[in-house]
């Protein structure tokens, strides 16, 4: 089977979910759609189980932080249909005061750690996740380090004098 055209793919999604799914871009030929957290589980399940699409491979799951937007945190899924060799990117944006989104670990076992990593870095809470703990950082960390306001360097360092670095 050849690659599914972006238009066909988008058509299939809008047929099924109407205005809940909207295209936001197709940079370098990779269809990017935005949806919301109410239907994300259905969208992912549809993409995985539909006989013509078969996006059976969860390539990647991560998040991004835009401090200037109203919905600051975006959760980003990359799916890959191995039979048709098509990729798709799905985004869901969340507000800071309601960072809940249904887990994808019920659809793919592999989503487990990717969601833990996303929680660790951005504080996104995946409802229904079997074991949502920090994974890379120390357990007693209270902040979410990949958010833009968190500094790169350790804020508690005392040996690094600013005047050594001309600042």
């Amino acid at each position: 089977m050849g690659k599914i055209a972006n238009e066909t793919l988008l058509q299939k999604l809008t047929d099924k979910f109407g205005e809940q799914v909207a295209q936001t871009g197709a940079d370098y030929g990779l269809l990017t759609v935005e949806t919301n957290k109410e239907v994300i589980t259905d969208v992912l399940t549809f993409l995985k189980t539909d006989a013509a699409l078969q996006f059976i491979f969860l390539t990647d799951l991560t998040a991004i932080h835009y401090p200037d937007q109203e919905k600051q945190i975006g959760v980003i899924y990359h799916l890959h249909s191995l039979t048709t060799n098509t990729r798709i990117r799905i985004k869901v944006f969340l507000t800071l005061d309601d960072l809940h989104i249904p887990t994808a670990s019920t659809i793919w076992d592999g989503a487990n750690w990717m969601e833990r990593e996303t929680y660790d870095f951005f504080g996104v809470i995946f409802d229904g996740h079997p074991d949502l703990r920090r994974i890379l950082n120390v357990d007693d960390m209270t902040v979410f380090p990949m958010r833009k306001e968190f500094p790169l360097e350790d804020p508690n360092r005392i040996d690094k004098k600013d005047y050594f670095f001309g600042r």
Binding site: L136, N137, V138, P145, F150, P151, L152, E153, D154, P155, R157, D159
Partner: peptide
Amino acid sequence: FDTYSVLQ
């Protein structure tokens, strides 16, 4: 690795 997670 002058970062928050690495021992200097």
